[in-house]
């Protein structure tokens, strides 16, 4: 579900909730975002390693037990900042990015952030792109108009989802936090 680009940011989001072990992160990631495509352990630790190298997380002392996964990871200020910047940024209004939209909404709800504000920003970005495509459709050649239409229908579908999600935020927030 989550595009490869967002895995580190999604893990940061999960760590923003509470310091966690790698296997906790994997379990939560798989149940919330995996949708039948679990994150390999190797990728979890490689990602955490890169995040640690970049100062976004710090690894605690290895705890007694076996294997490298007995470390608790804590998000840093820099990590929080990076995650928050990403969360607030509207997704580029291209078709088929619903999965990133979905990820952001679930994380925002889970962390008690203002998901409505985020959805409104996204809605504005989508509509801005739809206005551009509508203009292209009105003024461009037939092929441009066809392409514009394709984009418009996908963005329209996204927007309907955004509408419905906005209307259901309270119920969703409860479901995600419980």
């Amino acid at each position: 579900m989550v595009s490869p680009m967002s895995v580190p940011l999604t893990l940061l989001g999960l760590l923003e909730r509470e310091p966690s072990h790698g296997y906790d992160l994997k379990r939560d990631y798989d149940s919330l975002f995996g949708r039948g495509k679990p994150l390999p352990y190797g990728q979890v630790y490689a990602t955490l390693g890169r995040l640690a190298r970049d100062g976004k997380v710090v690894a605690g002392e290895a705890e007694p037990g076996d294997g490298p996964e007995r470390k608790r990871y804590v998000i840093t200020e820099a990590g929080v900042t990076e995650f928050e910047t990403w969360l607030k940024d509207p997704v580029a209004p291209e078709p088929n990015l619903q999965s990133v939209l979905f990820t952001k909404v679930v994380l925002a709800l889970m962390l008690g952030r203002d998901a409505e504000e985020y959805l409104d920003t996204q809605r504005a970005a989508h509509l801005r792109r739809m206005r551009e495509l509508t203009e292209l459709r009105r003024t461009g050649a037939l092929v441009d108009a066809l392409l514009a239409d394709h984009g418009l229908f996908h963005l329209d579908a996204d927007l309907r989802w955004i509408d419905l999600t906005t209307a259901r935020l309270d119920a969703l927030a409860e479901a995600v936090r419980s």
Partner: peptide, 28 residues
């Protein structure tokens, strides 16, 4: 949304209150 895309700008009414959505080229 496809009809609204013909407009220059949109406002949202929720629970009897209206708010303008941000316009212009924001960062995406």
């Amino acid at each position: 949304p496809r009809v609204a895309a013909y407009a220059d700008r949109e406002a949202i009414v929720r629970d009897g209150q209206a708010r303008a959505l941000s316009t212009g080229a924001g960062s995406v």
